[in-house]
Design a protein around this nucleic acid. Structure first.
Lengths: 129, 129
DNA sequence: CTTTACCTTCCCATGACTGGAACCCCCATA
DNA sequence: TATGGGGGTTCCAGTCATGGGAAGGTAAAG
């Protein structure tokens, strides 16, 4: 399989796949012409990576998860720990964004949005709450 | 005022303030010794920037907001539009994270987290939902 | 044979900083 | 007067996970 087909099937840009090879996440062999020759197992791993990335796991998390996936003697606790830590980080991020959102929504609501200069949004930014 | 004091009072790292000067957000004059000599107005602007950044506005948004702030003839509608667009982006981000969070929470819940290898998290990543 | 589509490597850019090296400047103390 | 410490300065490189694009080799189609 060439990179184009793999990109299509794994749902990842070819650029990204090359990058994943660069950082050692996949190691496809090469054809005589220098083209990457992906095996089914490479495709499978890339699809795994695509899903993990879609859940927001960092590349380093992905590296760990792939390692665990390929380790028949893994403990599911190890997987769970990685996922829980990531979940915590996501929750923190959501809380932070929610805080911004609330403040911003209040300010936007308070702003007339007409052609006069008075603006509670700028007022808040200038003076602090 | 030297950069250290401004950093303290604006709540921004000195490095960040130098960066803001680099990209033209502030233009403090210099003392004879080459030190930046911040005026009250610079401090004020940096505090404004700190608050805008804390609300998640991009640097380019900040540039626009500062411009509007300094324009006595601004229309509050222009400010409101910038804020509304940012609000929309935040909402999208929150929705995306919330989606990840829900999937991840379900998977974490389903995982025993013991020393056996069976793991619904890895199963999901490997096979897709 | 030529076009077109694909593949290769390589380098640069993103956003918003952060870290560190190498150096200058000012004040206080031994 | 030397020295030490705590400012300040510039410049370069790195972060994260790609994306863009150039320059060139290769394969498939007409």
């Amino acid at each position: 399989m060439n990179i184009g087909e793999v990109a299509e099937r794994a749902g990842l840009p070819a650029k990204t796949i090359r990058y994943y090879e660069d950082i050692g996440l996949v190691k496809p062999p090469r054809d005589a012409n220098g083209y990457r020759a992906f095996r089914e197992s490479d495709l499978h791993k890339l699809a795994f990576l695509a899903r993990a990335r879609a859940l927001g796991f960092s590349i380093e998390d992905c590296r760990v998860l792939v390692g665990l996936y390929q380790d028949d003697h893994r403990a599911s606790a190890d997987v769970k720990r990685v996922a829980e830590e990531h979940l915590t980080r996501i929750d923190e991020k959501i809380a932070q964004l929610q805080g911004m959102r609330d403040t911003l929504a209040t300010l936007v609501n308070a702003c007339h949005g007409d052609n006069r200069p008075d603006c509670p949004i700028l007022k808040d930014l200038a003076e602090g709450s």
